[in-house]
Amino acid sequence: MKLYKLDTIIKGELLRHGLSIHHYVKRAYLGLQFLRTVQLDSAIFIKTATLTILDNKVIIPEDYVDFVRIGIPNGQYVTRLSPDQNLYDGTSVDEDSLGDTTYWYPRINKYGENTGGYFGFQWENQSTFKVLHSEGKILLNDNVVNAATDGTILLQYITDGLASSRPDSTGAAEPSIIYVHPFAVDALRAYVDAESAKDGNRFVSRELEQKYYNELRKYRARVSGITIGMIKNSLRKRSGAFPKG
């Protein structure tokens, strides 16, 4: 997949405006700010990571914003785990000590689908997790730890795009490099231009802000991938043949 380095884009900006390297830091920071903001609402990129379990927990990646799916790899599929706010970060539960107490847990099949059938309320140990935001970790139920035979789980999450390391072609991590999706390059440039001009002529600044807004719209359109045909289909979907009343 073609990606551009933020560093290259910023240096290109300096070249375009005839500026020296002494203007680099401010523009690099603006570029970072753009990526941080724009990827929260305009473009959501989903990443998948395999995380190693340690003491019933896994460490959340640094570019994590929110989870999409957490599960245990099961062949070509993923057995989905369920969020459980009651999960407690304590010692393992001794099932015998629970006595006759009945617990209610959601029933979910290996494809992550709710299977229903909540009758009888028998004790059932389910695979659940809880995101511990303060620790930057995900807490896993004992069942998950037992089920994950290779000691890993799969996390699909929304990324802010700012993971600073990405393996290069040889597999070694490149430190401190941030990559930008080609769709976002023009909008990023327009944002850096608009923000940099705010200290100067306000008419120029307003024009650049307008340009940024337009570039952002183009970026959103490119990322969403919506076509005229898809919009038409969406409108037609609700209409069908009905007997005349």
Partner: peptide, 9 residues
């Protein structure tokens, strides 16, 4: 995030 060690991007 763009700082790692002494490196800026």
């Amino acid at each position: 995030e763009f700082i790692e060690g002494n490196l800026l991007l």
